[in-house]
Structures are given as C-alpha cells and as structure tokens.
C-alpha cells in the first residue's frame, strides 16, 4: 500500500490558466480521454495525474472565472510549466492572459516554461480545414509548431488552419501570441536568447477536433523532463528525512536479507 501512494507522488507540476470558456478543461479532456464533450464551468481547480513514461506529471486544470482568482497563485506554486490558454476567436481572452493571469505565475518556478495556446482553431477556419483536408496535409506541417509529427498522435489529427486562409472568426493572430510570449519573458526578466523560442511555445489547438492537442502536451512533457530529473535528484539529496522513504528502504533491505 505505501508503494501505491508513493508511486502517485507527482514529479512535476503543470498548470493550465486562462479566461473562462477558452477550453482549458476541454483541452485536458481531449488529451486524457481522447474525446470532446461539453463541460461545465470548472469550480476551483481540478487535479489530474498523468503517467508519462516513468514519471508522474500533475496537471492542474483551473477555473477561469474571476470568482476563483484568489486561488491561482496556490495552483501555480512550484509549477514547472504554465499553459496560458486563450480563445482564438476572442481577442479579449488573450488580453486577459496578460492582465489577470500573468501575475499569478509569480509563484511558479523561476525556470518555469510558458506555453501560449490559442484554442478553438476549428472555429476559425472550417472552410480552410475542409479544403486543406482535400489538398493533403503536407503543406500544413511546418506551421503548427508541433515537435512531434501528427502521425505520432493517437488522435486523428485534424488539419491545421492556415494563417493565409483565416476566416472572420479569428480575432487573434499568431503574431499577437508571439509578441505576448516576448512580453512574458521580459516580465519574468528572462533573456530571450536563453529561453525557448516563441515559435516553439505558441500553439494553436482545437480541443474539439484534437488538432495539435497531443503535440502541445507531449512537447511540454518533454520540455519539463530536465525539471523532473532535477526534482528527483534534489529529493534524493534533500537533508530532510522522508519518513515514507525510510520505511520503504527499511522494507527493501529486510526483503533482501530474507
């Protein structure tokens, strides 16, 4: 039994932030459950554990409502990555990221990774999507910024939306997101040259079709690996005595003796 609970101790923390109704819960749901369903407004925050190879990644899906604003800094404490989510069809939701949510990340790790995610890509170019689907997906590959090729995704990847064919629905351009990323780095006092490039950290996704969702999460998981490894070594070298650890080692040695 202690092993059971031990095993579930998270190695690293990722937080999803963003205004209400941008699709934070849907994104996570798409990634973990492989499907899209209507969600209700999240209350407070929801904690999920994701097994990623040998590691446990905890993901906090937070409520976007102003009502729960006060909890944000608690969710962000010690986070290794923050997913700042906005709605591609709602310019205000991008502005809110800077106004309301950026300050919450003050409690995150100093080397925290920031990803800017524009969700609801399906709404911005239904037409474009269909056309692209007929033309073949090849031309779309470079743009999405996904590190993993879509073929690696278990979800059938929908075709990404081309910037050139943006429909009227789209209110936020990729440039806006990229420049927000730059401002975030400056806010954090990070040197842009030492950080991950904006190209890699700005995503456009669709929780509804699954487009780019796996790429987003898996890219981030790969990126927080160093953080995981550091956490593990820190924990091993930690001067504090972990009683559960002690119990376990005790058990193990006993087992070896017998």
């Amino acid at each position: 039994m202690p092993e059971f609970s031990k095993m579930r101790k998270p190695d690293v923390k990722i937080v999803i932030l963003g205004d209400m109704n941008v699709g934070k819960t849907s994104l996570l749901h798409r990634y973990t459950e492989r499907k899209f369903k209507d969600t209700v407004s999240t209350v407070g925050g929801a904690f999920f554990l994701k097994q990623w190879g040998p590691y446990n990644i905890s993901i906090w899906d937070t409520a976007g409502r102003e009502q729960f604003h006060g909890l944000g800094s608690m969710y962000c404490r010690g986070a290794a990555a923050v997913i700042l989510t906005y709605d591609l069809t709602n310019w205000h939701s991008l502005a809110e990221l800077e106004e309301r949510f950026l300050s919450l990340t003050d409690t995150a790790n100093h080397d925290c990774i920031y990803a800017i995610v524009g969700n609801k890509a399906d709404l911005t170019g239904n037409q474009a999507q269909q056309v692209a689907g007929q033309d073949g997906p090849t031309e779309d590959q470079g743009e999405g910024g996904g590190v993993n090729p879509p073929s690696a995704c278990p979800t059938p990847p929908a075709s990404p939306v081309l910037l050139s064919r943006v429909t009227l629905n789209k209110q936020v351009s990729r440039e806006d997101a990229v420049s927000l990323y730059g401002r975030i780095l400056r806010y954090k006092g990070m040197d842009e040259s030492n950080c991950l490039p904006a190209d890699k950290m700005c995503f456009e996704t669709s929780a509804k079709t699954g487009y780019n969702v796996d790429a987003l999460f898996e890219t981030l998981f790969d990126m927080v690996l160093p953080s995981i490894l550091r956490n593990r070594t820190e924990r091993e070298q930690s001067p504090t005595v972990d009683l559960e650890d002690h119990k376990e080692t005790g058990k193990r040695t006993r087992a070896r003796c017998c």
């Binding site: 749901h29 973990t32 459950e33 209350v43 407070g44 925050g45 929801a46 904690f47 999920f48 899906d61 409520a63 729960f68 006060g70 909890l71």
Partner: peptide, 8 residues
C-alpha cells in the same frame, strides 16, 4: 467526475 477538485 474526473480528477480531484479543490475549491473554496
């Protein structure tokens, strides 16, 4: 129904 909720 999914995950663990923490809310004021």
């Amino acid at each position: 129904q999914a995950g663990e909720i923490w809310t004021p």
